[in-house]
Amino acid sequence: MSKQNKSIYSYWLAVPCLILYGLFFIIPAVVGLGLSFLNIRSFDFSQATFAGLRNYINVLSDSGMNIAIKNSFIFAAVTTVLKVILGMVLAVFLNNKMRTTNFLRTVFFLPAVLSSVAVGLIFTAMMHPTRGIINIALRAAGLDALAQNWLTDPHLAIFSVAFIEVWKWTGFTMVILLAGLQSIPKNYYE
């Protein structure tokens, strides 16, 4: 096969990908954007009325939505910063040759493999206000003042959930950064 035929062949392989991308991403995004300008009260779209920007004004002026947006930004900022910092620390530490390097890499990466449902159930049980193992351990150690309502206190819950997210995905970030560190030639370190 000539070089020109290979080039044409590779373009024809891109066509199905573009069709699927348009079918599953572009069209739903455009339809969703169009529907956001309508008032729809039921699944009968014939009764839909044009709302203009009213739906966006209602959402952005709702105090509950403002809190949700604020919490989303807090969660994203806290988890991103902590996952990158902790992942980099672990990657630099585990980039060295030690006897336990492979074992520690596995231990730190293991939470990323766990099911999110299982992690949620485990941490819900651990952070229960009265029967959770964290509060029981704090009370047993005489640190009653540190026992908290980890998942029900509005000011603390976002950080508790962020901690769980960081615990689960720091190992994954570590693996990605470790791969980058290992691809750097040794002569740059000298």
Rank of each mutant, 00 (worst) to 15 (best):
K97C: 03
S63V: 14
A141D: 05
G120V: 01
G52C: 07
K83P: 00
V31R: 12
T80K: 04
P185L: 01
F103G: 05
S115G: 09
N55Y: 11
V113H: 07
A179L: 10
R131D: 08
L13Y: 14
T173H: 02
G32K: 05
I133Y: 08
A77L: 15
V78I: 15
Y56D: 02
L90G: 00
G22M: 09
K83Q: 15
N95W: 09
V15N: 05
W169R: 00
R131A: 10
S116E: 08
L90D: 00
T170C: 02
P16L: 05
V15P: 01
I134D: 06
E165N: 13
S116N: 12
I158E: 03
I57M: 07
A145I: 03
P111Q: 02
N102E: 11
S72F: 11
G120P: 01
A29Q: 07
N55V: 09
L104R: 05
M126Y: 07
F45G: 04
F50I: 02
A179K: 10
F123T: 02
S2I: 04
V119S: 03
I184Q: 07
P129G: 03
V107E: 05
Y189D: 06
P185N: 06
L151G: 04
N66G: 14
Y11A: 11
G171R: 04
S42T: 15
L60H: 09
I67S: 15
S2K: 10
L38C: 06
T101Q: 14
